[in-house]
Design a protein around this nucleic acid. Sequence first.
DNA 1: CTGTAAATAT
DNA 2: TATATTTACA
Length: 314
Amino acid sequence: MREEDSNWFSRWEEELPSPEELMPLSQTLITPDLALAFDIPNPTNNTHNHNNNTPTQQQAPPPTPPPPSNPLPTSAATPPHPNSAEFGADSADLGSGAAGEEPARTLKRPRLVWTPQLHKRFVDAVAHLGIKNAVPKTIMQLMSVDGLTRENVASHLQKYRLYLKRMQGLSGGSGGAGGGGGAGGLTAAPDPATDHLFASSPVPPHFLHPGRSNSEHFLPFVPVAALQQQQQMAAVAAAAAHPQLQTQYHRQVGHFGSPPNGQFEHPFLSRQSQTVHRMGAPVHNPVPGYVEDLESANGRGGRKVLTLFPTGDD
DNA sequence: CTGTAAATAT
DNA sequence: TATATTTACA
């Protein structure tokens, strides 16, 4: 009974998967540009959409990739990854000299996998921002996750809202968000489908509508512990999906460290052994569905009272 | 820019 | 199949 309150804000570093798992960054995949040009991105999808209707755009992007502009410094995003084919293993010389080696620049993000960790970060940002300012833009900025774009956040935000709404309407308020360290027990997962991902992440108790009668609603300025770690975590999480997720999830690993010019290196790779220190017990994360948020690793003992996230990091 | 809706891919 | 994510439109 020590951690009665529960700052959903716990520690993400602990939830980090095994460092060994987040290293598939060396899979030298073919140049994204080439892949696009050659049209060999995902063998699984391809032109296989059943005959229904294809009003809007779709795949088969002509040799005219619209390069918007990816000012992403640290890491780019998630280049096309062959989740099933193994040809990506070593196709290396696909365009070696060919010219332009500008791969990780304006790539078409395959699919951002919102891993629980990432989602947690998302919720976290929203919690700090408040429903008022919980706009995609702010959230994205607060998240500071490279590769994360406003679209991604906006999209997820939508889902997140729906999830919250659903919860309120069903539960009625009793700590709908079970996450927060025993804030009223677990809600028997009303919608195991739409809320699968959300259920895994701790939902701050004050996400409900602002008009609710919930008086105990306060925004404890819970400064994040080590922002660096979080960044790495987020990046890593986004980069390396969870290979051990539920039954059969797409293990599409987003390759982050993709230096367009080969200038930057992998920030998280060289810092892992230092910051990411585990307890020692080889307890992996067999079932990420449950987050053991019972420990408020806050400034207890250690004065890591960070004022706030870097508001201007973008 | 934000929110919502529809489409698509996995 | 259903779900998650992406994208387009308002």
